[in-house]
Design a protein around this nucleic acid. Sequence first.
DNA 1: CGACTTCCATAACGAGCGGTATATAATAGG
DNA 2: CCTATTATATACCGCTCGTTATGGAAGTCG
Lengths: 203, 203
Amino acid sequence: MEVETVPAVKGRPREFCVDQALAQALHVFWAKGYDGASMTDLTEAMGITKPSLYAAFGNKEALFHKALDLYEAEKLEYTRAALQQPTARKVAEYYLRSGVDVHAAEGDPHGCMGLMSSLACSPEAESIKADVIRRRASSQRALVERFEQAKREGDLPAHIDAEGLMSFLYAILQGITVQAGAGATRAELEKLVDTSLALWPSA
Amino acid sequence: MEVETVPAVKGRPREFCVDQALAQALHVFWAKGYDGASMTDLTEAMGITKPSLYAAFGNKEALFHKALDLYEAEKLEYTRAALQQPTARKVAEYYLRSGVDVHAAEGDPHGCMGLMSSLACSPEAESIKADVIRRRASSQRALVERFEQAKREGDLPAHIDAEGLMSFLYAILQGITVQAGAGATRAELEKLVDTSLALWPSA
DNA sequence: CGACTTCCATAACGAGCGGTATATAATAGG
DNA sequence: CCTATTATATACCGCTCGTTATGGAAGTCG
């Protein structure tokens, strides 16, 4: 999978890097939300003009979906890595501590891009909401299965409801992202995580 | 404090009820968020024209703040009632069960108006965010004090961090409102509450 | 009955939105 | 060199936004 140094396409070559421009667009969407990010915001941050944007990405909605793909691949990778942890408790701890790392990071916007786009987006953005909710449901399903495996392996009490526990863990994570977006300090978020883990059921 | 049946004002009397119109506006803001609710949405739901709205409420932002006042007074009253419960556990249970009742009610929009307005609002609505966050902070302070009282009264273990527990309870509530807004069923939300309460620290 | 005051209805304002038509510049193949 | 193809740059489109000016309708006061 070598990058072709010679473009082998006919016309004038584009003068910007698509991946880099997409990363800038992600940053804008993350900071301002789908509706709040105007095409002017986006093109200025991406360093390209509107026709270039439309030629390369389609339209605003398509750009957002591609940005969301990048966001999940880069920033939400921890939701997959967490499942590999040996015990349910460690899964939860990995989930929450990584959640704090990602959603209260120094150089990135605070809060969760998916959450802020699943709420509050208003007019035509129903497809955005649906996309985010669909992705979230997939992640939640994996978490339920992981907890049922943990029950079988004995590191979760048998009386625990896996779906309830997943919903619980997800709620904590959502609370983390909400509070991070509202300006909570990292110390406050870590205290929240510590408190949550102190209450986590032990086998 | 009698209602004056004779207006005693000079000009033409207004033809709509301000309180009722505000209630309609609240419903629209709750369902669509600050940015998502257009003046046309609002005036249509309120049954009045734009000049009437501006004369009675000032502008969109002032209308929102008044709607938020009404929302807190009517729908978030439970956050104050919860503090009166005799034990910290009952405070938490009252908080969470009322949260489900309010944010997944039949006739009202699902999710929390304050939360959806504190996230994602975009351009000029910074003052909205600040207002919501300020109100939230006041509620959170009361909860911390209630938990410290509970520690003194012995119905919370002494090693518990009151701020951490408040942040935890708030995160669950925020998770409830997020999941309610995303279409979670009432049964799912109640399962989340049951799981959370099962993990609540006992004295 | 005016005079005055307040409210309602229509229509319009400027600004910003997402999206695009047009013209020009840069590369490839013939 | 010429044509075809693609990217860029400028300017603009129609639309909706929040907000307001204007004219008339509906009241109280003298």
